[in-house]
Computed example of a mutant assay.
Amino acid sequence: MKRRSFLKFSALAALFGVGASGTAMAVARNSNPYHSGPLSDHFDGVRFFNPDGAEPKGFSDLLKWKFGGNQASWPRSVKSPFAPARPEPRVEGDRLRITMVGHATMLIQTAGLNILTDPVWSDRASPLSFAGPKRVTAPGIAFEDLPDIDLVLLSHNHYDHLDLVTLARLRLAHNPLVITPLGNDAIIKSHVPTMRVMTGDWGQSIKSGPATVHFEPCHHWSARGVNDRSMALWAAFVLETPGGKILHIGDTGFDNGRPYRNARERHGSFRAAILPVGAYEPRWFMKDQHQNPDEAIDGFLLSGAEFALGHHWGTFQLTDEGRDAPAEVLQARLAEKGVSRDRFRPLHVGEAWEHPLTA
């Protein structure tokens, strides 16, 4: 394997937590450097897991995919007609405005709060600065144009969601509070020791100002490098605000709809659901970690949300489908299922959506 191809493969292996990278963290197999705590129905003392869920794929499966797959060709660069966005300094009261920055990075504005999800402004979603999935569309909001950021919701530690370089920039520019599942604080603090971080387990909550953040289960896993798979927890979030509740999922497999049923049973209705719709091909490899657009619609309907916004597509090429396939498939499936396109929109980079009843 040529050196450049090997580096790209190593970065992708680290991204999916099934291989090694020269810069990845190596840990003992029977110890957890991120978290220690009591056993639970999803923590065995060393690793977290999905109760009654599917195990992550292994290294041989990654090899089978990468050397026997059929990856679509993406453009090297795409300019979004919506970017760069110029967000308002604050969105007060019951108004709800959500702007797509790119991939899983969203700016949520409501109740006077500015909240970022899984912030990534780096050029690559990779442990390497020179190899791995490269951004094809510039961030929808220039970093310098961000309003004052109060909170960061960080769903898990994969490189396309936890970007230490961006977190360090946010610490210096905004000093936000990072809310993240168990174990991710150790990863953040090792690189940004002065970052304000609070962690929680599934079923727990953290209150910050007028909002309460609830940690909810989803079907995924975590890894930063060699042997640390699933040693930090992953989660969906329910953001409870004076104007209502918002469901945000960074990554999940559909898991027979359990993440959505559980959220609805615990929280009732949602003003909006922010759901992943991309990085789903080939299905035999991705099904247990990434839902496809059809499953995202089913999850939206199960959640009972008024509206849904699709993310996790069009920025980094992680999997086999084409860049625009998630949006195209989503819109076709909405028509087939009789769901209005206005109710579930795959947001483009830089595009802002405002809840129609408060716009």
Rank of each mutant, 00 (worst) to 15 (best):
V197S: 09
R196S: 12
P119K: 06
L162D: 07
D94M: 04
T166F: 11
G140W: 06
D148A: 14
N114R: 01
D160N: 13
D145P: 01
M198I: 11
H191Q: 07
S129A: 14
V120R: 09
D123V: 11
P193F: 01
P181I: 07
L167P: 04
L170K: 06
A168Y: 00
A104G: 07
P193H: 02
V192T: 13
L154P: 10
D145I: 00
L170M: 06
A186G: 00
T137H: 06
P133T: 13
A168G: 15
I187F: 00
F143N: 03
L146F: 08
M195H: 03
K134M: 13
R196C: 02
P139T: 01
L162C: 13
W121V: 02
M198D: 03
F130Y: 15
S190R: 14
D163K: 08
L146A: 02
H158F: 11
L128M: 14
V136G: 07
P193W: 05
N175R: 12
K134P: 11
L113V: 02
Y159R: 09
F143V: 05
L128F: 15
P139C: 07
T110R: 08
W121N: 04
D118A: 14
R97G: 10
L172W: 05
D163Q: 09
H158E: 13
V165P: 00
V120N: 14
A168I: 02
N114Y: 04
I108A: 04
L96W: 01
H161S: 15
R135L: 04
L170E: 09
H103E: 15
L170H: 02
H191I: 00
L107G: 10
P139D: 06
G93W: 10
L116A: 05
D160Q: 05
I98M: 09
R171I: 01
L96T: 05
L167F: 02
L146M: 03
A168S: 15
G102H: 09
I179T: 05
V178M: 03
V192I: 12
L172I: 05
S126Y: 11
D118V: 03
L151V: 15
A131E: 07
I187P: 01
R97E: 15
L113A: 09
P139E: 07
P147V: 00
V152G: 08
L172D: 15
T110A: 09
G140H: 12
L153C: 00
W121Y: 15
